[in-house]
Amino acid sequence: MKLYCKKCNYLLVEGLVKAINKEVIYADEYDLIPIGKYINNNNNIWNFENLGITYLLNVNNINLKNHYNHTKMQGCCGPSGVDGLNQLCPKCKQEVGVLVADCYTPYFIGIDKNKVSERPVW
């Protein structure tokens, strides 16, 4: 799978394969998904309320920038993700995802389906 930023067409990630259920670990302070894998949030694995989070990735699979607004990065021991999209495209700074990495959560990045495309935009 490849994901491109819809705003600037920057290639955010490539080469990911879908994880199988037994590879997903639902434990606090552990990676939810193995490196090189992704899962769909279609079954509402993680509730993001009004965010359009479709893909869940290992934090090490994608190189995004932390949000400049520190209030979006709040949590006890790391960002909890409850304050909305907190990860930016490294090229155009559009909000594209949410980093979840607090002590009471597994670690992952959720990607907003409305901000990315699986094919180049142009």
Rank of each mutant, 00 (worst) to 15 (best):
N69S: 00
E23N: 05
G81K: 13
T71N: 14
N43W: 13
L16F: 04
I39H: 07
N43L: 07
K93R: 15
N86D: 04
Y38E: 01
I35Q: 07
D31R: 09
T71P: 11
K6D: 00
N50V: 00
K91A: 06
N50C: 00
A19R: 04
N69L: 02
T71K: 10
G75S: 05
T71A: 09
C89A: 07
K65S: 08
Y68I: 08
E95Y: 12
N61E: 02
D28E: 11
K91M: 13
H67G: 08
P34C: 00
K18I: 10
K7Y: 09
D28Y: 12
H67Q: 10
D28P: 05
I35S: 04
K37P: 14
G81I: 12
A19C: 05
D28G: 00
N44H: 15
N9Y: 13
C77G: 01
Y10F: 15
C76G: 09
K7L: 12
I53G: 04
H70N: 09
L51R: 08
V17C: 00
G78I: 08
T71I: 15
C76F: 15
I33H: 06
K22S: 11
S80E: 03
K65W: 10
G15L: 10
K22Y: 11
M73I: 13
C89H: 06
D28K: 12
C76V: 14
N66V: 06
I53W: 13
N60P: 03
K72E: 01
N86V: 04
C77P: 03
N60Q: 14
Y68K: 14
I53H: 09
I20N: 05
H70E: 13
Q87W: 12
